[in-house]
Nucleic acid binder design. Structure first.
Lengths: 335, 335
DNA sequence: GTGAAAGCGCTAACAA
DNA sequence: TTGTTAGCGCTTTCAC
């Protein structure tokens, strides 16, 4: 008995169905039936098999199963950075939906590098994921063609990619419009916009929303009040604006990292930020934000993907999620 | 030509090495050699193969490869919740180390439920991960035995598990001692401790550090100043202490969520919190914390794991990482 | 209710 | 330098 292990271990150190079959004195196929809970096995036989499984520490080899069946019960997720709360929120939601579908999530961070995104996606495809959720780092998704042709559905999340696929994004444009309008309504005529690099889709959309809001209010768009670039340049840019002749009285920040960067400069001025963040309500004054809902974004993308995986038909969908203005004080300061 | 796809697609909708071999007019093994960059293939032949690969959109089937080789080039990671910045920090670090080792990370959130932890781990084992990093949700890890026997190395992170395995944790005890001593040095004689449920290892260790610090200072340990429980109960507990005869003048909070919960109560008192958090420096006063380093924790665990995967010998190691006190104002307030 | 045989796509071992 | 053969562990098909 205590010997079974040594006798039955296969080359890779794990017992196989064959080993279990031998130990239980049945055929391979019977073990397979028990493991997969197929009907039509004599309860007594099943019992013998189960006890052998227990005794040997048998665990089905998923690779072999996948090889035979073609379905992996896993999906691939490419985000920018798990350590960023916005993306980890998406991750968690995707994970939850996948769990409900009995699926595992392979995920990886692209770090906003198109090469890394591609590498991750292709690795996932090599592992024959059933589908992909991608936060696009680049705009060229030609590399996806063969995978899509092979029947792997893919969904773009947070930004559209370079292919006409299912896409779930936030209403960046409208959200920025709302936030900027909020500042204007509170008496500001010179509102600065600090956004991420304009090459990033969400940043460009939000800038567009800013411009629309300023124009809709009948105010002139002053390009010297607009600065686009990586978050670490936001602080200096704002300081430069303040040093000018006709400084802004309010600022709209284009994402969470830029909001924080501006807060760290210590400039005390009216502001509304895109993206909510923990403790925004505890700062003095509380930081007014245009909030996205990363969990909802992740959920929507995952649900859309699973619908496709299960054969859902039809043209590419584009879902746009609303944003929500949360007034907390900083956006209600008068000039 | 445009026809190749239809002709060569296999049952599962993807071309196989066999298809590529046929298209390139070589043997299967030659394709394998090219795909795996094995030496000794005539450049001209290799060229033909590569072009066939390109044309057919061939991608190696990793499941088949794994089945044959026994190594999956992937590791499993079980954390409590990806959406929590502490754990997503760990995730990111693990991912980075895995990337350097050419490995993929399968990860999942246990939500602090032992059953879910077990389920995730066993799913990962079914997929034949090369190793596991586990933030234990429970203390009974008997279910791991067969997997360990089968040669899958595992590392516990953040907390020890119920088995004598490699473990990487923070100096919870020492960190709490440092933080509490800091408050006492600033004149506080009645320091409250608000910690997570005492059944959680880290919470118990930190409580122990608190007790030691109080005793080392020659002060009496007053149990009415200690409250252990889930973060949502921390605020009420503190309020109750304040309503008492001899309220605390300072509080030490046992983790980040409790720190935030206490901040939200609006009580203005001296405090030091375990765990650093974004914007702690921007609150007024800045929040003094005992900081852990999740990235370092993740990195250490992953490096230890890969050492084991590559056959590193020896008894189970236990690595304890230091914490760091960061004074920002709240911990330096006098009674 | 049970089993034997074939084969998923790949790599390892051994020819040629 | 290239090819042939066997078989990884499982599911599928069909026979008993």
């Amino acid at each position: 008995m205590g010997d079974d292990r040594a006798v039955t271990d296969s080359v890779h150190g794990r017992p196989t169905m064959k080993d279990v079959a031998a130990a239980a004195g049945v055929a391979l196929k019977t073990v397979s039936r028990v493991v997969n809970e197929e009907p039509g096995v004599n309860p007594a036989t099943a019992e013998r098999v189960l006890s052998a499984i227990e005794r040997l520490g048998y665990r089905r080899n998923e690779s072999a199963r996948v090889l035979r069946r073609g379905r992996t019960a896993s999906i691939g997720l490419v985000i920018e950075d798990v350590a960023d709360p916005f993306y980890s929120g998406i991750s968690r939601a995707v994970e939850d939906v996948a769990l409900r579908h009995g699926s595992l999530v392979l995920s990886g961070s692209s770090g906003e590098e198109p090469r890394r995104e591609r590498e991750l996606v292709l690795t996932f495809c090599s592992r024959r994921v059933d589908g992909l959720i991608i936060v696009p780092a680049g705009t060229d998704h030609g590399y996806l063609r063969p995978e899509l042709d092979a029947g792997i559905p893919a969904v773009f999340a947070d930004r559209p990619g370079g292919l006409d696929l299912d896409t779930v994004i936030c209403d960046n444009n409208g959200g920025a419009h709302t936030g900027v309008t909020h500042l204007i309504r509170h008496g500001h005529r010179r509102v600065a916009f600090l956004g991420d690099s304009a090459s990033i889709f969400t940043a460009a959309e939000r800038l567009y929303g800013y411009r629309r809001a300023v124009e809709d209010a009948g105010l002139p768009v002053d390009e010297s009040l607009v600065a686009m670039g990586p978050p670490e340049r936001a602080g200096p840019a704002l300081t430069r604006m303040f040093a000018g002749d006709d400084p802004p009285t309010a600022v709209f920040t284009g994402n969470g990292r830029i909001t924080v960067a501006v807060l760290r400069t210590g400039h005390r001025l009216a502001m509304v930020g895109f993206d909510d963040f923990e403790l925004a309500d505890l700062l003095v004054p509380g930081v007014t934000v245009v909030a996205q809902d990363p969990a909802r974004l992740g959920r929507a993308a995952a649900e859309l993907l699973f619908r496709r995986i299960m054969g859902g038909p039809g043209a590419a969908e584009r879902i746009e999620l609303p944003t929500r203005l949360i007034p907390r004080g900083s956006g209600e300061l008068r000039p």
